[in-house]
């Protein structure tokens, strides 16, 4: 706000007394510092939108734009006639919602519990350790998860030691386990990281509130319920909306790296489907149309969540 008031006179002077041209010359370094990057973003973020025209063509890589066959909505109709599409859509939505629910609630709980620890050293150590998996690649994470869930891995060893099962379970070969494995892997990797923002919100709560509550004889649970939770309510709302916005951008890295041919019916998601059909099989037009459908699903979910949020809190996030 301070910036606004102190620089305003300068710009007013330049608007009234000098021409636009002179202001531009005066600000030449600002243009110089931004234009190369504007050009880069234009090429790599905006130009691909032109490629959406492929969805309405029967695109052949060797031909010029003017020589392509225009087929209207044929590719989109083909998508909805493909039974595989519904399977892939189911997998995408299922894993997205599981990631949303687990990936949102667990970090909140983790942050609240972490805040209850009184030994500063222990708390800091757990925090630092919990951020660790966020920094490793999905390649490494998938390698670790495959290893600990293998027939001679730690999990099976533990289950057999506890007599829960008498022979090792092939977790990675069972389709019905796949969604759970992906969700838990995501949790293992990102729980600590996603709790940072909630921990910061908790740190912002006035300590006097806790002291007053303790004097009044409030128990630990009551303090959490009546002080901590209301204190981070707005952060929780914003993060919920943001997570819903990211719902379909679950990506395909985990699914690609953790999946295998045995669990394909459960692991294939929209992006992977685009990759396999579009680039793998050279069906560029079909793949582009699929990409557009994917974006539409994402935008619909974003607008829907924003609308719900508005109804509840009378605020908008986008």
């Amino acid at each position: 706000m301070k910036t606004e008031t102190s620089l305003q006179p300068l710009s007013q002077v330049s608007r009234t007394k000098r021409s636009l041209w002179r202001t531009m010359i005066e600000q030449r370094y600002l243009f110089l510092m931004s234009l190369p990057f504007v050009a880069l973003v234009f090429v790599f973020n905006y130009l691909p939108l032109w490629g959406w025209t492929m969805a309405f063509q029967s695109f052949k890589p060797g031909l010029d734009f003017s020589e392509q066959d225009w087929v209207g909505m044929k590719n989109f109709i083909a998508i909805f006639q493909e039974p595989q599409f519904y399977l892939v859509l189911r997998n995408t939505l299922a894993m997205s919602f599981m990631a949303l629910i687990a990936g949102y609630t667990v970090p909140v709980l983790f942050a609240i519990l972490l805040n209850e620890i009184r030994f500063a050293f222990f708390k800091r150590s757990i925090q630092t350790i919990s951020y660790l998996p966020h920094f490793v690649s999905w390649v490494v994470a998938a390698g670790i998860i495959t290893k600990i869930l293998s027939v001679d891995g730690v999990v099976n060893e533990l289950l057999m030691w506890l007599n829960i099962t008498d022979k090792p379970i092939q977790f990675m070969a069972k389709g019905e386990w796949f969604w759970v494995i992906v969700t838990l892997s995501d949790l293992w990797k990102e729980m600590g990281w996603n709790s940072i923002i909630f921990l910061a919100a908790i740190a912002g709560i006035d300590p006097e509130l806790y002291e007053a509550a303790t004097v009044d004889g409030a128990s630990r649970f009551r303090r959490i319920w009546h002080i901590t939770l209301p204190g981070i309510r707005s952060t929780m709302m914003v993060m919920l909306i943001l997570s819903i916005g990211w719902l379909t951008s679950i990506g395909f890295e985990k699914q690609y790296l953790l999946g295998n041919s045995l669990v394909l019916d459960y692991s294939e998601v929209l992006d992977l489907y685009v990759l396999n059909y579009g680039i793998g099989m050279g069906r560029f037009s079909f793949g582009t149309a699929l990409g557009i459908v994917n974006s539409m699903v994402a935008i619909t979910l974003l607008l829907l969540s924003n609308w719900i949020f508005k109804r509840i809190t009378k605020e908008s996030v986008i």
């Binding site: 973003v41 691909p48 939108l49």
Partner: peptide, 18 residues
Amino acid sequence: FFVLTLYFSGGLIPVYML
């Protein structure tokens, strides 16, 4: 111009073709 890039992406295949 930059904010908009947060909300859309060309998708895998258009980017690949580019």
